[in-house]
Amino acid sequence: MIDLIGYIFIGIGITFDFIGCLGLVRLPDLYNRLHASIKCVTFGTCGIMLGVFVIHGFTDVGIKAIFCALFLLLTAPVSAHAISRAAHLSGVKPWEKSVCDHYEKDK
């Protein structure tokens, strides 16, 4: 029973990882692609880690999985800021159908 719940979590995680990769192909520009790669892939990988924790419980494997998810949650957004800011400073233009760009205005 516990194995089944763990596999369900892992399945959800893999689905979101797949959707994130799909978004990387489908969305129009760098900033929108970052949305897909940061949110969906972080959530998906955390789901997989949670599934591993549910299956293995409080053993060395399970605890390591939980800490991996925690570190991923702390570091993935930071890499998103770094990539998007660097891209904007070096002149990557947003998609031409973008509504507004207040960052460009204030620079």
Partner: peptide, 20 residues
């Protein structure tokens, strides 16, 4: 994530991006 997944999977790509 459910919102993001919906926007990615929707065939019409209902996005209106911008920096506010």
């Amino acid at each position: 994530n459910i919102d993001g997944a919906y926007r990615i999977l929707h065939p019409g790509l209902p996005i209106k991006p911008g920096i506010v």
